[in-house]
Write a protein that binds this DNA or RNA. Structure first.
Length: 783
DNA sequence: ATGGCACAGCTTTTT
DNA sequence: GCTGTGCCAT
C-alpha cells in the first residue's frame, strides 16, 4: 500500500534465468482488442498509447508489464512504471499482482514523488542533504517562507507568503533551480523572488528538508550533474511506462527523458483531451510533442469505449471538437443507443439543487425505462467546491445520504498535523519545525515572547530549539508560569524520545504522547462542533499506525502516501469536483452549474485566455465521459455568489453540444410547473430584473426553441417516508442536539421525522431526525 | 497571552 | 456570505 518501501529496484541483480521463460502461455492477450494488443506487443522503442476515456488503458498497461516479464525481455526490477497518484499506483500494483501471482518479484511501480524519494535518499549528499531528510508539507513550507519574508523586511500584506510559495512551485515545476531562473522572472514577487527562492533553498538544506517540488528537482539535478549515477539507473531500468502522460510538467518530463534517452524503451499513456492540470504546471505540449522527442515512436490509439452510450460519447466528442491542436481520436462504442444527454435550465441554484435531489430520488425508484439505481451509481460533478454547498444543504434537508469526495486530505488536517508534530518530536527531538508547531499547543502560556526567547537562546548557542529551551530554563531566563509548563513539555519530549529508543509498542506510545501532552484533552474540552470529528480523526490516525512497525516507519512514509479513503458500506450519492472525478465512472452523472463565468471559469479565461477556455473544455469532456448511462447537464439563471445574487448566461459549452444527442427538458421554474413559483417568490427583486435580460438572451431563446414539450418533472409523488420511530420518539421540544455539520442546537418543532432545530451557530434548519444525535451523546465521544 | 473584532479574499489540487 | 488572518484591547 505504500508507494516506495517495497519493490527495491536496487537489489543485487539476479542471474538472467528469466530469459529462459519465453514460452509461457499468454492468456492476457486474448482479452485485448486489436488496438490494445498492438500497444502491448510493441515492447521495444518509444510507444505513445493515446487512450481515450473508458478505453481500457489500465488493462493494456498492466498486460504490457506482464508481457515484458513473460517474454523474458525484462526482469521485474528492470521495469519502472510511474503514475501521478498513489491511488493509480495501487491499482496498477493490484492488477499486476493478480495477473502474475505471488511467485516473482514485482516491478518498481509508484508515483513520481515516491520513486524520487527513494532515489534521493540514496544520493542525498550529491545535493547537500543527508539521506534521512524530512519532507515538508505545505503548511511547514508556508511558515518557513513567512520567516524569510519577515526577515527580508517585506510587507507580508502586499506580498503574501502564498504568492511566493506558488511562484517557487511554478519554478520548480519547470525544473529551475535558483541559479536557473531566467532573467525574465527577475521582477517576480516585487523583484525579490529569485533572492528569496535562493534563501529558501539554503534554509531547507540547513534543516535537512525538502518540499514536494524538490523531490523531483533534486533528482533531475543529480541526473544532470552526475552522468555516472544516471548511467547506472539507465542500465537498471530498461523499460519505462508512464501513466497520465498529458499531466506531466517540465521537471517530470526531464526526469523521464533523462532515464529513457539511452534505451528509449518508454511507453507513455495518456489522453491530450483529458489534460486538466495546466494550472499546476502540466504541459499538454509534452504529449503533443512526443513523436518529435522520440523519433520513430509508434503511436497506438485506443478508441473503443467500453463505458458510455453513443449519445454520451457523441455529446462529449462534439464539445471537445472545438479545441485546436488535438492529436485527434474518434471514440466509438458498440453499446445500445441509450438516453440522450439531458439539458435543463433553472431559475436559480437552489432550484437546481432541489431538482437534482428529486431526480436522484426518482432514479432510485427507477423511472423512464431506467432500472432502479443505488445511490452509489450517481454522482454530482461540480466545477468549484463552493458549488457543493447547495447540494449538501438540500440533501440534508430531504435526508438523502451523500458523500463529498476530496476536500482537505486527512493528513492536512490541523489535528493530524499537530499529532504528527508530536510524533516527529518524539522520534527526532531536533526537529525544530515540529517543536515550533506544538510547543504552545495546547496552550502552555508560551506565546510569541517566550518563543522568541527560546529562538534567541538556541541561535546564540547554535543548538536546536529544544536544547535552547533547556538552556533557557537552566539559567532561569524565563519567568512566570510559562517556565514550569515548558519544563513539563521538555520532560515529556525526553521521556517519549527515550521510549522510542527502547523496544516498545508504538501504538501505545502514540496514545501516551497524545494523552500526556494534553492534546487529546484539548479537543475533549473544546465545545465547537468540529471537536468530535477531530477526536475521531485522531483515533483513525492511531489506527493507521497499526500498519507500520514503528513511529519512524510511519513518519517516513506518511506525507506521501496517506489518503483519506474510507470505504463505507452505506449507499450514498457522490459529490465532487470535476478534477476529482477524473478516472472515475458512474452510471448516472449530473453536471450542474454550466454557466459562463462559473464554467468555463472566469478566472481561467482571464488568466489564460484561449488556452484557459480549452482546458475548461477538456474539463467538460472529462465530466461528460464519466457517465455510463445517463448524463444531465444543467445551469441556473441566478446564483448567489459570495452572498450577492448574480445572473449568468448558459455556458458556451452548451452551444457546442450536438443537438441530435441532447434532450432539452422543460425548466420547472420557467413554466410555472412544480415548485417553480416558490423559487421565484424567494428570489430578490434585483435578481428578477436582471433575469428579464437573461430570458431575452440568445442562450435562452435557443433553449426555448429546442425545448421538447415533454416536462420531466412529473407532479411529485408522495415520497415514501420511512419513519424511524426510535429517532422520532427520542426527541422532544427543547432537546439539545448535535449535528455533524451544524453543530449544537435546540429542537423547536417536530413534524414527522423532520425536526426544526435552532442551531447555536447555523441558525434555524429543518433536519431529518436521523441526522442528529442528542447533545449529551456528542459530548463524550471517547478517544 | 489571549480573546474579540474588523477586514480581506475567495478555482481547480497531487505529492 | 463565510472563513481565516492579523491586530488591538484586555
Amino acid at each position: 500500500m505504500n508507494g516506495f518501501d517495497e519493490n527495491d529496484a536496487f537489489e543485487a541483480a539476479a542471474p538472467l534465468s528469466q530469459r529462459a521463460m519465453a514460452a509461457r502461455p499468454q492468456p492476457y492477450l486474448d482479452d485485448l482488442n486489436p488496438a490494445q494488443r498492438a500497444a502491448v506487443l510493441a515492447l521495444d522503442g518509444p510507444v505513445l498509447m493515446l487512450a481515450g476515456a473508458g478505453t481500457g488503458k489500465t488493462k493494456a498497461l498492466t498486460a504490457r508489464i506482464v508481457h515484458l516479464l513473460n517474454t523474458g525481455k525484462a526482469r521485474p526490477n528492470e521495469i519502472l512504471a510511474v503514475t501521478f497518484t498513489n491511488k493509480a499506483a495501487r491499482e496498477m500494483k493490484d492488477r499486476v499482482a493478480r495477473m502474475l501471482g505471488q511467485v516473482e518479484g514485482m516491478p518498481w511501480m509508484g508515483t513520481f514523488h515516491s520513486i524520487s524519494v527513494k532515489i534521493l535518499r540514496r544520493h542525498a549528499e550529491l545535493v547537500g542533504l543527508k539521506s534521512n531528510f524530512t519532507i515538508l508539507d505545505t503548511d511547514d513550507q508556508l511558515r518557513l517562507l513567512k520567516q524569510l519574508i519577515v526577515a527580508a523586511n517585506i510587507d507580508e500584506k502586499r506580498w503574501p507568503a502564498r504568492m511566493l510559495a506558488g511562484l517557487i512551485d511554478t519554478w520548480k515545476n519547470r525544473a529551475w533551480t535558483p541559479q536557473k531562473v531566467p532573467a525574465s522572472e527577475a521582477s517576480a514577487y516585487n523583484n525579490r523572488g529569485t533572492e528569496l527562492y535562493d534563501q529558501y533553498q539554503a534554509r531547507l538544506r540547513a534543516l535537512n528538508a525538502t518540499d514536494f517540488g524538490d523531490l523531483l528537482l533534486h533528482v533531475v539535478t543529480i541526473f544532470q550533474t552526475h552522468p555516472d549515477v544516471l548511467a547506472q539507473y539507465q542500465r537498471w531500468l530498461k523499460y519505462i511506462l508512464v501513466d497520465e502522460y498529458q499531466d506531466t510538467n517540465v521537471a517530470q518530463y526531464l526526469w523521464l527523458r533523462l532515464l529513457a534517452q539511452s534505451h528509449r524503451n518508454i511507453c507513455c499513456v495518456g489522453d491530450d483531451d483529458q489534460s486538466i492540470y495546466g494550472w499546476r504546471g502540466a504541459e499538454v505540449g509534452n504529449i503533443l510533442r512526443f513523436e518529435k522527442d522520440f523519433p520513430g515512436a509508434e503511436v497506438v490509439r485506443l478508441e473503443q469505449n467500453y463505458r458510455s452510450t453513443p449519445h454520451i460519447l457523441a455529446a462529449a466528442s462534439g464539445v471537445i471538437a472545438s479545441n485546436a491542436g488535438r492529436l485527434g481520436k474518434t471514440l466509438w462504442t458498440d453499446r445500445d443507443e441509450g438516453e440522450k444527454v439531458r439539458l435543463i435550465g433553472h431559475w436559480d441554484g437552489e432550484e437546481e439543487a432541489r431538482w437534482i435531489g428529486d431526480e436522484v430520488e426518482s432514479l432510485q425508484r427507477g423511472t423512464r425505462g431506467l432500472e432502479p439505481h443505488g445511490l452509489d451509481d450517481m454522482a454530482i460533478l461540480v466545477r468549484a467546491s463552493h458549488q457543493m454547498r447547495a447540494f449538501e444543504d438540500r440533501f440534508l434537508t430531504i435526508g438523502l445520504p451523500y458523500r463529498v469526495i476530496g476536500g482537505p486530505r486527512f493528513y492536512e488536517r490541523l489535528e493530524i498535523r499537530d499529532a504528527m508534530a508530536y510524533f516527529r518530536l518524539a522520534v527526532s527531538p531536533d526537529d525544530d519545525l515540529a517543536f515550533e508547531r506544538v510547543v504552545n499547543t495546547p496552550k502552555r502560556g508560551l506565546g510569541d515572547k517566550a518563543q522568541q526567547e527560546i529562538q534567541r537562546e538556541a541561535r546564540a548557542h547554535g543548538v536546536t530549539l529544544l536544547e535552547g529551551a533547556r538552556g533557557l530554563l537552566a539559567r532561569a531566563g524565563l519567568g512566570g508560569k510559562g517556565a514550569g509548563q515548558l519544563r513539563g513539555f521538555i520532560e515529556g519530549v525526553d521521556r517519549w524520545h527515550a521510549l522510542t529508543l527502547t523496544p516498545h509498542n508504538h501504538i501505545a506510545l502514540a496514545e501516551q504522547i497524545l494523552e500526556e501532552s494534553g492534546y487529546t484533552d484539548m479537543w475533549q474540552n473544546d465545545k465547537t462542533p468540529e471537536a468530535p470529528g477531530r477526536l475521531e480523526n485522531l483515533k483513525e490516525l492511531v489506527k493507521a499506525l497499526e500498519q507500520f512497525e514503528n513511529l519512524q516507519g510511519f513518519l517516513e512514509h506518511v506525507a506521501l502516501i496517506m489518503d483519506n479513503e474510507t470505504e463505507e458500506a452505506a449507499q450514498k450519492v457522490s459529490i465532487m469536483t470535476l478534477h476529482a472525478a477524473k478516472g472515475l465512472e458512474f452510471p448516472i452523472v449530473f453536471l450542474p452549474g454550466w454557466e459562463d463565468g462559473l464554467f468555463p471559469s472566469q478566472r481561467s479565461m482571464d488568466e489564460s485566455g484561449l488556452k484557459g477556455v480549452e482546458e475548461e473544455r477538456r474539463l467538460a469532456y472529462v465530466g461528460i465521459t464519466r457517465a455510463e448511462e445517463l448524463c444531465t447537464i444543467s445551469f441556473a439563471a441566478n446564483r448567489r455568489v459570495y452572498g450577492q445574487w448574480q445572473s449568468a448566461l448558459p455556458s458556451r459549452f452548451i452551444d457546442e453540444l450536438p443537438e441530435a444527442h441532447v434532450d432539452v427538458l422543460t425548466p420547472p421554474g420557467l413554466y410555472g410547473g412544480g415548485y417553480g413559483a416558490a423559487g421565484i417568490a424567494s428570489t430578490s427583486m434585483d435578481a428578477r430584473v436582471a433575469n428579464a435580460n437573461v430570458y431575452n438572451s440568445p442562450g435562452w431563446k435557443r433553449l426555448q426553441d429546442r425545448a421538447s414539450t415533454r416536462p420531466v418533472s412529473q407532479p411529485r409523488e408522495q415520497r415514501n417516508v420511512t419513519i424511524d420511530l426510535d429517532a422520532v420518539s427520542s426527541f422532544t421540544l427543547g432537546d439539545r442536539v448535535f449535528h455533524q455539520k451544524f453543530g449544537y442546537g435546540a429542537v423547536v418543532a417536530i413534524e414527522g421525522d423532520k425536526l426544526d432545530v435552532d442551531f447555536d451557530k447555523a441558525g434555524m434548519k429543518k433536519i431529518v431526525a436521523r441526522f442528529v444525535v442528542a447533545a449529551s451523546q456528542a459530548d463524550d465521544v471517547p478517544f
